[in-house]
Amino acid sequence: MYQHLLVPLDGSSNANEALKEAISLAKGWDAKLLLLHVTDINQFGGYGRGLAYTEVIASMRENATELMDQAKKQATAAGVTVTTASLEGAPKQQITDVANDDENGIDLIVIGKSGTNAFSRLVVGSTTTYVVQHAQPNVLVVNDIAED
């Protein structure tokens, strides 16, 4: 059915559930996964470029690397072929750019219903909503598992 799945990851529980779903789908379809993390360095706006800013960005990049390493291990352990990409910028735009780039061959995006940045959702809208509205491939939105 689908052969190239894009899974945007931000460390949220919704993204983790999307990853689990994508791994299951990829196994069943013998599909490949592209795991994507976008470090939103734009969230700091014009707050300067001093030492504190540099340290925060370095920490964000380190966290992204750890997140992607763990996700790749999870997919690989399940026998799924996986590649990763880490970008910087506005997540909603980067996700749709990767999804819409014909060279990536993405035919399904598996994304969590909501991510980690509640403030951004309130001010500029949900990344998931944007992706659903602007991505060319089909989009599967995965809900987080409700806790008892």
Score class of each variant (00 low, 15 high):
Asn138Trp: 01
Ala71Lys: 00
Gly115Gln: 05
Pro91Ser: 13
Asp107Tyr: 09
Val131Pro: 00
Gly89Leu: 05
Gly125Phe: 01
Ser86Cys: 08
Tyr53Glu: 06
Leu34Gly: 09
Tyr130Trp: 14
Ser120Glu: 02
Leu25Gln: 11
Glu55Asp: 08
Glu103Pro: 00
Glu17Phe: 09
Val80Phe: 02
Gly11Asn: 05
Thr116Met: 10
Val82Ala: 03
Ile95Tyr: 04
Gln43Glu: 11
Ser24Trp: 06
Val56Gln: 08
Arg121Lys: 09
Lys72Arg: 15
Val82Glu: 01
Ile106Asp: 12
Leu6Asp: 12
Glu103Met: 01
Ala146Asp: 08
Tyr47Ala: 04
Ala71Gly: 00
Gln43Thr: 10
Ala31Arg: 06
Gln74Arg: 14
Gln74Glu: 15
Ala18Pro: 11
Val82Met: 01
Asn138Glu: 06
Met60Tyr: 09
Thr127Gly: 04
Thr76Ser: 10
Met60Arg: 07
Val124Ile: 02
Asp144Glu: 15
Leu108Asn: 04
Thr128Met: 12
Leu122Asp: 06
Ser120Met: 03
Leu108Pro: 02
Asp101Asn: 14
Pro91Phe: 09
Val124Met: 03
His134Gln: 10
Val139Lys: 01
Ala26Gly: 14
Ser24Asp: 04
Val38Met: 13
Ser114Val: 12
Asp10Thr: 08
Thr128Lys: 13
Val124Trp: 00
Gln94Met: 13
Ile57Val: 15
Val56Leu: 12
Thr127Asn: 10
Asp69Trp: 00
Met68Gly: 04
Asp148Glu: 15
Gln136Trp: 06
Tyr47Lys: 03
Ala71Phe: 01
Ala26Asn: 13
Ser114Asn: 13
Val123Met: 14
Leu5Trp: 02
Lys113Glu: 13
Gln70Asn: 02
Gln133Asn: 06
Leu19Trp: 07
Val80Thr: 03
Glu147His: 13
Lys92Pro: 12
Asp102Lys: 12
Val123Phe: 12
Gly28Arg: 06
Leu9His: 02
Pro8Cys: 12
His37Thr: 15
Asp10Ile: 11
Glu21Ser: 15
Gly50Tyr: 10
Gly11Arg: 05
Val124Ser: 03
Asn14Phe: 11
Asn63Tyr: 06
Pro8Thr: 13
Val38Asn: 14
Ser59Tyr: 11
Gln136Ile: 15
Asn42Leu: 12
Ala64Leu: 05
Asn138Val: 02
Ala135Gly: 12
Leu140Cys: 03
Ile145Pro: 01
Ala75Arg: 13
Ile23Phe: 04
Met1Pro: 06
Glu66Met: 05
Thr129Gln: 06
Asp101Pro: 09
Val110Trp: 01
Gln133Ile: 01
Thr54Asp: 06
His4Trp: 03
Leu122Phe: 09
Leu122Tyr: 05
Ala31Lys: 07
Tyr47Pro: 00
Asn138Phe: 06
Leu6Gly: 10
Thr96Val: 12
Asn63Cys: 07
Ile145Glu: 01
Trp29Ala: 10
Ala31Gly: 10
Asp148Ser: 15
